[in-house]
Computed example of a mutant assay.
Amino acid sequence: MREQDLAGEAPNQSTGINLSDDQTATIDENTYVDGDVTVSERATLRVTDGATLHIAGSVTVEGDETATLDLDTGSGNVTVLLDEGLDLSGDAAVRASGGGRAELYVDDSITVRDAASVTTAKDTRLDVYNTGEIDLTGPVEIAADGDVANNLWLYSSGDEVEIEGPETDGDRVRFTGVFYAPQSEVELEDQMTIRGSFTFRKFSFDDGDIEIHYDEALRTRQPFDGETVPVVSYLHVSTHGVVVESD
């Protein structure tokens, strides 16, 4: 991510972006924003035309109406780099479309709450990378359209993933894609559905209810592009006995 730092190089420079009501801002060339970005109510921030957007701050998308971070790959792949966290709440949305590839790098935490969503169209690949904690709370949706799990990949090197689904029957945290967080400890509370696959270091439940639907189309897929996967340089193997006793 640091190798793509646009400070002082991008043709378009800004000290921050604050959109509300019906405002729309379009990023169609490499842009550096030295500050935070807020998108609220019905506003839209669109990244298009193969642009890279580097934000030296956080991104907040919020409101009871659909405020949107729109990643439009119809005229070229797009990239968004965040030096700080991503916070989605209310009916906020991050949406990728256009038939290309969108990449979202978050060098901090990701929080998705309420009915917020991160989605991608059937013909569009979305890769999300983060280095901090992930917090999913409420009937949130992180999903590829049409249950095409290979179109959405969430990579995390953070220590913790907290998932607290809604208690209401029928409402769940919904994830369709590949969730690759081999260093993360994950705690699930209440209800969640995963379609695709997940890799975690540890998975624990606090009154959790989880449905898992593995996508057989992912059997030959690697967690990263290319013909090889990261090399394991050291492996410690141990065994632990388990005793089961009846009452």
Rank of each mutant, 00 (worst) to 15 (best):
E3S: 12
L6D: 08
L6Q: 13
G8R: 11
A10F: 04
P11L: 09
G16H: 09
N18Y: 13
D21N: 13
D22L: 14
D22W: 07
Q23L: 13
T26G: 01
T26I: 12
E29F: 00
Y32Q: 03
T38Y: 05
E41P: 00
R42V: 08
L45I: 08
A51L: 04
H54Q: 06
I55F: 04
T60H: 04
V61R: 01
E62L: 09
T66A: 10
A67T: 07
T68G: 05
L69C: 03
S75D: 15
V80G: 01
D83V: 06
E84I: 02
E84A: 08
G85R: 01
G98D: 00
G100E: 06
E103P: 00
D108C: 03
D108Q: 10
A115Y: 13
T119C: 07
T120K: 00
D127T: 10
D127N: 14
D127R: 06
V128A: 04
N130H: 08
N130W: 02
T131V: 13
G132T: 07
E133H: 10
D135S: 14
D135K: 05
T137V: 11
T137F: 04
G138P: 01
P139Y: 09
P139K: 05
I142P: 00
A144D: 06
D145V: 03
D147L: 13
A149M: 03
N150Q: 14
L152C: 02
W153Y: 15
S157T: 13
D159M: 09
E164P: 01
P166K: 03
T168P: 03
D171L: 14
R172S: 05
V173H: 02
V173C: 02
F175T: 02
F175W: 09
Y180F: 15
Q183N: 15
E189V: 10
R195E: 05
R195H: 13
G196F: 00
S197Y: 13
I212W: 14
I212S: 07
H213L: 13
D215S: 12
E216I: 08
R219W: 14
T220S: 15
E227L: 07
V229K: 11
P230R: 05
V231A: 15
T239V: 12
V242M: 08
E245R: 11
S246Q: 14
